[in-house]
């Protein structure tokens, strides 16, 4: 049909629509919580992409890593339930990197190590992330693929923008306290010190049983228990993790950590 065949809306209907025009305001707590999840997911995808690429050995020299150039091999995005074909060691690195991303502060995505750092821990690596295109086997949308509007042909189209997924910035003291404990655990686990990692995670669980970083804590607990050679406990914890966060992007890495 042609535009001129379109009858205008009646004044009454147009007036009525005014009532719905204002946008919802997402509460601050929800904004922060969702931002945490988004950045963790971005970090997981980024870490997986970086680890899958040949340059998985991001040097611990503090250089800037182009982290998202490889194929993302992490699966299990919301609704897909796919298990990623990644090994246990890589799974550990992915979760450690993702958690570091989530709890890390400072400017840029402060991922302390995509590879497990040696002791003493190296200076943080600032990762500048480019959006992935095209991503294979990394269904992030509920559907295996979600088509996106074709880019409009524009002769003067700007070069692909660089995206800097931002770190979670503590919004209050509680989150800061959570962040500290989870970061302690992450750093200990990165040094293969599973005992201190488990202690920090247990403290987090006692003090923040429903905290904003519970998802990260539970994923790290699985890894720490595996590292501590308590596979049965790790498997039990993984079952709880899956039940609580069925769509977690950390799920494939948790599964892989327990793989024989």
């Amino acid at each position: 049909m042609r535009p001129d065949e379109l009858e205008p809306m009646s004044d009454a209907m147009s007036d009525l629509l005014e009532a719905e025009r204002p946008l919802d305001h997402v509460p601050a707590a929800t904004r922060a919580q969702l931002f945490t999840r988004v950045t963790a997911s971005v970090a997981a995808l980024t870490a997986a992409g970086a680890a899958a690429g040949a340059a998985s050995s991001v040097a611990s020299s503090g250089t800037t890593a182009a982290a998202a150039t490889g194929k993302a091999v992490i699966g299990g995005a919301a609704g897909s339930g796919t298990t990623a074909a990644i090994g246990g060691t890589l799974a550990t690195k992915v979760i450690i990197a993702a958690v570091a991303f989530t709890v890390g502060g400072g400017v840029g995505a402060t991922v302390h190590a995509v590879v497990v750092p040696r002791s003493p821990p190296p200076a943080p690596i600032v990762v500048r992330v480019e959006p992935q295109r095209p991503v294979e086997a990394a269904p992030v949308e509920p559907a295996p693929t979600v088509p996106v509007p074709e880019p409009v042909a524009a002769p003067g189209k700007a070069p692909a923008p660089q995206v800097t997924p931002s770190p979670l910035r503590p919004r209050d003291g509680t989150l800061e306290a959570e962040r500290t404990l989870v970061e302690q655990a992450r750093a200990a686990l990165a040094r293969h010190e599973s005992g201190p990692a488990l202690e920090a995670l247990a403290q987090h669980e006692r003090e923040f049983p429903q905290g904003q970083l519970t998802e990260e804590r539970m994923a790290l607990q699985v890894l720490a228990l595996v590292e501590h050679d308590e596979r049965a406990a790790a498997a039990a914890r993984a079952v709880k993790f899956r039940a609580r966060y069925p769509h977690s992007l950390l799920q494939p890495a948790v599964d892989a950590a327990l793989a024989p």
């Binding site: 988004v38 880019p151 700007a158 997924p165």
Partner: peptide, 23 residues
């Protein structure tokens, strides 16, 4: 809403290279 908004922003992040900033 939170889960689906999460999916929207992750998709946006992945596809941002396809976005034409002039639009």
């Amino acid at each position: 809403l939170e889960d689906t908004a999460h999916d929207v922003f992750i998709t946006a992040w992945r596809k941002l290279a396809d976005y034409d900033p002039s639009r």
